[in-house]
Every structure is written in C-alpha cells, then in structure tokens.
Design a protein around this nucleic acid. Structure first.
Lengths: 237, 237
DNA sequence: ACCTGAACACCGTTCAAGT
DNA sequence: ACCTGAACACCGTTCAAGT
C-alpha cells in the first residue's frame, strides 16, 4: 500500500459524494419506500450526521429528484443495438429497458412516474432529457416526420406509464403498516389480516382468483405489439 | 328560529364528521398537493385542533385513503345510462366519468393512481370495490365470459392509468417550490425562472413547442377508440 | 474541505383532562 | 360526546463552530 493511495483515501474522507448519497437513498427506497426516507436515516446509513448531506444535495427534494435521474441515467446505453436496426425493434428494446427499471425498483418507480415533470415535454416515465432526445432523434432517422415523432412519443409514454406503474404498484408496497380506518358503515371492510373482506355474492368475489393472477409480462408484450401495429398503420397510410 | 333547530345545531357542534374532514382534506390537496397536507393545517381549516380529527379518522394515512374513496364514491351513478346500452358505450362513459375526476382534481389524482392497492384485483385508478364490481357485472351482462371480462378490465385500467395520470401530472403541480439541485456537471440545467435550459442543437429544443402542445383530450379519445376497436376484434374472433 | 452541535420551526400521535 | 393542553418522539434545515 503506497502512501499515495492512503492519502487519496484520506482526502476522500468517507468517500462521500453525491452519487454515494443517491445510491444509499435508492437502496433505502427499495427497502422501505420513498415515504419513509428521512435525511437523518440516510445520514445514519452513510455513517454521518444528516447535516453533512447538505454538502452534496440541496435537500430532501433534491435527493428524490436525483434518485429519479440516477435510475434513468445511462438508460440509452442499455438498449440493444442489434434490435435497434428497425424502429419497431428500437421501441421494443427501449420499452423492455425501462420495464427492467420498474421491475427492479417497484418502490422507486412511482417517483419516476408521478413527480411533477420539470417541463411538459418530459412525459413520465421518460423523465430524462437524454432519453427523450435519443428517442426523438432515433425515430427521426427512421423517417418519421416531426408530427409523427411527437405522436409516437405521446402514445409510447402513455403506454409505458400505464403498464409499468400498474405493475410496479402490484409488486411494490413492501411492509405497509396495516391501517384500520374508523368504522363508517359503507366503507369496505379490511379484515384483521389486512386482506379485504368481499361482500358475498359480489362479482369481484367470484372472479377473485382470476383477477389476482399476475400476467404482467404477457400483458406488456401483447399491448406493446398492439401499439406497434397501430403505429405501423398510422405511418404507412 | 325554533329552539329545536338551535338545539340540533348545538348537538351537532361544529357539524364536524368524517365526510367534512375528508372534504376539507380534498380542498387542501386540490390547492397545495397531498405532500403539504398536515393534520394541524387540516384542523385549522376546520376551526379545530389537530387532535380533534382523530375522532373521525385514524390518522393521516386514513385521511388520504378516505380522500381517494370519496373521489370514487358514487362514480357508478354518474355514468350515462343512455350510452350504457352497449358495452362500447358503457366503457366510453365510464372512461369519461373517471377522466372528469382526474381533470377536476389533478393534484389528488396521483393518490388514486399510486397508493398501494389494498388488493391485486383493485387496479388503479379503479380503486373501488363498487366501481370494479359494477364493471365486472356490466360486462358479464353484455355477454363477455369470465376470461374476457378480466382481460378487458386489465386493458381498460392500464389505459386509464397511463392517460389520466399523465394528463393530471401536466395539469397539476401547482406552485411547486423552485429547487436548485447542487451543481454536478452533467445534470440538466434549470435556469433561474424554473424552465429547463435545453442544450443547443438538441432535438428536444427543435421540437419544443410541438412537444409542449396539450392534446390531452384528442389523445384520450383516439386511444379510447383504438382500445375499443381492439377489444371488439378480440371478442368477435 | 468536510463534518457536527445546537437550535429552530415544524411534524403525527397519544392521553389524561376539561366541558 | 366532543374538544384540548401538554407532552413525546420525531422531522428538515440552518449556521456558527470545530478539525
């Protein structure tokens, strides 16, 4: 071990920087959800007092925004270049890449999906200038004109948002505190084990098991195919 | 004024009850967003101390869940019975009824869309036993079999979630505090007036005005038509 | 340069006490 | 029955002070 290396480590202190703070925040959100992320807890997780974090982030809001950015960062480098030789293939690999984020971070994805977009042209879940620009440029190269590019961008983002947020909210939710609403006649009745008690004879009760099946993957693939088919018609007609 | 009426008013006290608390909470969320809803502020709005609210709600979480329920409450009575004579018409009027909720309460709709569903068969934004049951029963009456009903339910909810949350997040957002992230080279650059500064030459910059147009209504109508067409094919084939 | 102690102005929630 | 004062255990954030 050279004294240079030691020096380097000592200069770096605990090695704390913005990326490390955001990484720790993401881990915490993955475990407990964004609601339970506190600056004090985040500091503790990094072996430091909460106040130290303000050297790297401007506050809790900046942490959350930074986590969103870190999830989308470098996303365009993860799309499959092989598949990107057609616009259909590009949209497919891009969709799958973003879906991977939602599946890997179901508790963080709602942030990507619902935080107020910084600009109207940053439609969730494509909340990244880098991603949106790549999208627009790529479709333009495939021969879409401006109106078509924008139209595809709109349908594509709505499609992703609906499917991925739904999938994330079914997967996520972790150990949510079982809350008993105060009894008020017509409310639904969460029973003591946290599951909803269904009124006898209701259609939901009869179809309960079928409704509870998880077909996230097939649903996504089928709807993506349908979207591409529809776009294809819109382009060639 | 009879002494009976006075008595009645006095017995009712400030007329506080669960519905009044939830209504005040919704008004507050409409103005300031759910994040800024506090029990203390809610009490103040009702002329009462925060602790008094705990007589009607079990806590802040219960308030938020109650607001969601109140938004969806009685929704099935607001669908147009004329249009409900065909399943296509039913899905259309139901979709429009739910869209009205999203448009009227853009700051509250993210709650409907993203709070962890109480059960896997309560897919956001259809987070209400009443609505889902009505949906399943009605489609069954129109001749869909169990598998078809469930499939339609899945596509319909994904469609609504994607379009309405996107529309709500563009409309909502109110007076968000302008947050400056700490400078870190590769981040995007929010300029002093809160708008994002676009890199020169980027495709987003060139298409900025087209991307910023609001076509929420047409988009919704067109995608709804497309969905219905697709379902029609799935049913008759 | 990096971290912290102390402090400020808040939170949600409980509970015994008031009327 | 309905409301509250006081208290507890937290928050995010600032800033002067330490090393």
């Amino acid at each position: 071990m050279t004294s240079g290396a030691t020096e380097e480590r000592r200069i770096a202190g605990r090695g704390l920087d913005r990326a490390a703070v955001l990484a720790a925040a993401l881990r915490s959100i993955d475990r407990n959800g964004a609601q339970r992320l506190t600056m004090r807890g985040l500091g503790q997780q990094l072996g430091v007092q909460a106040m130290s974090l303000y050297r790297y982030v401007s506050g809790r809001e900046d942490v959350l925004e930074g986590v969103v950015a870190s999830l989308l960062d470098g996303l365009v480098d993860r799309v499959d270049p092989q598949l990107s030789s057609t616009w259909q293939g590009y949209l497919q690999t891009l969709a799958h890449t973003i879906r991977a984020v939602a599946i890997d971070h179901p508790n963080a994805f709602p942030l990507v999906a619902t935080r107020h977009p910084a600009a109207p042209w940053l439609r969730p879940p494509l909340r990244s200038l880098e991603v949106v620009d790549h999208f627009l440029v790529t479709l333009g190269r495939f021969g879409f004109n401006d109106d078509q590019v924008v139209q595809v961008y709109r349908s594509f983002s709505s499609f992703l948002l609906g499917h991925l947020l739904l999938e994330a909210s079914l997967h996520g939710g972790e150990t949510s505190p079982v809350e008993e609403p105060i009894d008020e006649g017509d409310a639904h009745f969460p029973s003591s084990d946290g599951t909803l008690e269904l009124p006898p004879g209701s259609e939901v009760l009869r179809l309960q098991s079928k409704l509870s099946e998880d077909h996230g993957h097939e649903e996504f693939e089928m709807s993506l195919e349908t979207l591409l088919d529809r776009l294809e018609l819109g382009v060639t007609q």
